[in-house]
């Protein structure tokens, strides 16, 4: 337990080091997730529009 605490403490600099890693993780993961979500949204929209167009030409 003391070992884990010593590790997390990072020689007294734990707050700075973990803040840096946490921030980088949040920014990168957030950007990738947002990019994937935007892509899925556009793909779904394209499918819907195409089916509407097909419906139009059937009339």
């Amino acid at each position: 337990m003391a070992e884990v605490e010593a590790y997390l403490g990072m020689g007294g600099y734990g707050a700075f080091i973990w803040a840096a890693y946490l921030l980088a993780t949040l920014i990168l993961a957030g950007l990738l997730a947002q990019s994937r979500r935007a892509l899925k949204k556009q793909e779904a929209l394209l499918l819907r529009l195409k089916s509407i167009r097909r419906g139009d030409s059937d009339d």
């Binding site: 990738l32 994937r36 935007a38 892509l39 556009q42 394209l46």
Partner: peptide, 23 residues
């Protein structure tokens, strides 16, 4: 990884605009 995802997203968005225009 992120770049190809975003470029693909932009390309599909352009198609969406084209289909919307034709509709």
């Amino acid at each position: 990884t992120t770049l190809v995802t975003r470029i693909k997203s932009e390309l599909i968005a352009a198609r969406v605009q084209n289909v919307q225009r034709s509709l």
